Amino acid sequence: MAMREIRTVPDPVLRTACDEITTIDDRVRSLVADLVETVDAEGRAGLAANQIGVNLRAFSWNIDDEIGYVINPRIVELSEDTQDGDEGCLSVPGLWYPTRRAWYARVEGIDLEGKPVVVEGTELMARCLQHECDHLDGLLYLDRLDRAVRKKAMRELRAQL
């Protein structure tokens, strides 16, 4: 296990869709251990594998004092009800913008034993599930912003780089 460095924009790994995990081996076990350890820090809600430079479909979360992970997550259900709130990202440090997300989300995947896992939640957990699945698809929360807000965010981001 190791606390891993977080990749930040414009690192191209953040814009690359991650590969399915087809075999649970020592590399995957090590990845999950690193994801869990790295997300277990103040102010961290979720962490996708590509945020630590690994192009595989796995993420960890740290919500309401619960830390967990899921391998090969896929969103299988989103509520029609939405929530608005400021969203930030470890890979886009210091920028927070209002981002509309589903109020409820349900993700299915597997654990390190290859057994099916369902992770679901509302509000912050739902936001986290959607945010981390976006990462695994090569998307950033900035891609979900309303056009005018996204324009402002991109200006601020460019000023930081």
Rank of each mutant, 00 (worst) to 15 (best):
P12T: 02
D111G: 08
W96K: 11
L35M: 07
P12F: 00
N55L: 15
L90M: 12
I110F: 00
I63D: 07
Y97M: 14
G85L: 02
D40W: 08
C18N: 05
L112F: 02
T23S: 08
R57T: 01
C128S: 07
T99M: 03
R44E: 07
G46K: 06
V76D: 02
E87D: 08
L31P: 12
L47H: 04
S60P: 09
R44Q: 06
G121Y: 12
A41R: 15
P98K: 13
C128P: 01
L124I: 13
L124G: 04
H131A: 08
Y104I: 10
I21G: 02
Q51R: 10
D65F: 05
V119W: 11
R44T: 12
E42S: 13
D86V: 08
E37P: 03
D111H: 02
T22L: 13
S79K: 05
R101H: 13
C128K: 10
T122P: 00
A41T: 13
R57A: 01
S30T: 14
V36A: 08
D11C: 03
E37G: 03
N72Y: 05
K115E: 15
R44W: 06
T16N: 07
E66T: 15
D111Q: 06
R27E: 15
D111W: 03
T122L: 10
L56S: 01
G109S: 10
G121V: 12
A102F: 04
G114D: 11
D19W: 00
P93W: 09
E123Y: 13
W96N: 11
T82F: 09
S91T: 09
A102E: 03
Y104T: 10
P73R: 04
G88D: 01
L112T: 08
G46N: 05
A58W: 09
E113R: 15
D34A: 12
E87L: 09
P116H: 06
V119S: 14
A58C: 09
V119P: 07
D25Y: 06
P12M: 01
L31K: 09
F59T: 02
L78T: 15
R106V: 13
V118Q: 14
D34S: 15
I21L: 03
E87R: 07
T99W: 00
R15G: 13
I75W: 10
I110L: 00
G46M: 07
I110D: 00
Q130S: 09
A58H: 08
K115H: 12
K115M: 11
D65P: 02
N55Y: 00
G109N: 02
I24C: 13
V36G: 04
V32L: 09
T38S: 14
R27T: 11
Y104P: 08
C133R: 01
E108C: 07
V28M: 04
D65Q: 11
L78E: 14
E113V: 00
V36K: 14
